[in-house]
């Protein structure tokens, strides 16, 4: 990472207003999909198909959420065009944070299932 190489480089231009608005619409649609997924799995509109979706519900939901997260970070927070250093400063903690959540949930699930149950 030779930091000095980029010092003379002007700040790259941000995306246009049209891109921002389109991203906003995609975010809205993804949110609608999240809620819709809930409605058709557990909510008022849950038909016989609901039970079939159930095993995929959490992964699908997390996937949608991750998509929204990535869109905001890449476009609205400009990580896509900005210096890679910013991406590193954000993504490295994000990885540790995710591992932390997973680690704690797994360790505590084991603890509740075996140790505490006796």
């Amino acid at each position: 990472m030779d930091a000095h190489a980029t010092s003379a480089e002007p700040e790259r231009s941000h995306p246009s207003v049209g891109v921002y608005v389109r991203i906003g619409l995609v975010l809205f649609v993804l949110t609608a999909l999240e809620v819709g997924l809930y409605e058709f799995t557990y909510g008022g509109h849950a038909g016989p198909a609901g039970a079939a979706i159930q095993p995929f519900f959490v992964p699908l939901l997390l996937l949608l959420s991750a998509g929204k997260f990535a869109l905001v970070a890449m476009f609205y927070m400009h990580l896509k065009q900005d210096h890679r250093l910013f991406t590193g400063v954000f993504v490295f903690p994000l990885i540790i944070a995710t591992v932390l959540i997973l680690g704690l949930v797994v360790l505590e699930a084991y603890h509740f299932a075996f140790a505490r149950a006796g």
Partner: peptide
Amino acid sequence: ATGLDNRKLAIWTFIGSECLFFASLIS
């Protein structure tokens, strides 16, 4: 030295740190 503004780098650093704050609360 990086050509990046101090304050912008600092807020990103802070945001990185906040990831762990919210990760702990979510955990």
